[in-house]
Amino acid sequence: MNINTKTLLKFFEKIGRSFSVRALRLGAATRLFYLILIYSADSFKRIHLTIREIYFTGVMSLVIIIVSAFFVGMVLGLQGYYTLQKYGSSEAIGVLVALSLVRELGPVVTALLFAGRAGTSITAEIGLMKATEQLSAMEMMAVSPVARIIAPRFWAGVIAMPILASIFSMVGVLGGYVVAVPIIGVDEGAFWSQMQANVDFRFDIVNGLIKSVVFGIACTIIALFEGFDAPPTAEGVSRATTRTVVTSSLAILGLDFVLTSFMISG
């Protein structure tokens, strides 16, 4: 066997290994999802556990969501006005801001911020609990960590995400309003009425909500799995945290494309 065949073989071996590792992790994540669903009944019986987690994932993300939404809305207003006034239709600014927020930016930016704010802390927390044997200790006390730790965090994420996305879209629209009406001087009536005429409740707002629920499921599962799967060392936990952000962001953008194409064609 000459050198070239050897390096070539090594190359394919590497590709193959990275594929099989990914397949293995995807399978393990699916298993975790299944376990969560099975143990959900247990954790719903003690709803205060989930409420506690909604506090940590939802309420704690509120400030970053509101501040970012306001700025995103204002920027959309400015940029939209700049382009629309060239065509003499600056009243359409409300439509532009509302549609871009409700359909896309609301769910997507919220999910990205959520992955960075709440997802990382979920991964780090679970990873540390694993590293310090807290999960093992719980198992030895005949308490399932999935029921006590994982499932409440999952439902908290799934509940918090659409709420945060709604808040994001609403605050963003207000941000656009602040720029368009008092600052630029677009007519207030035209701003709202054009918006109402063109934003459909079912096709725009409900679809946006569906997106954010799907993102909520994806983000939380990824964060939980990375924490659960992290090697129990400081380095392992920190790498898992990074992976949470990268994987969630890619998953959000990929899912967004798939969902949008379904919603537009359907």
């Binding site: 540390l128 609990m129 310090t132 044997e133 807290q134 093992s136 200790a137 719980m138 030895m140």
Partner: peptide
């Protein structure tokens, strides 16, 4: 059974 883990493993 009761088990005492190496570093205590208290719920932080």
């Amino acid at each position: 059974m009761g088990m005492l883990f190496q570093h205590g493993a208290l719920f932080s």
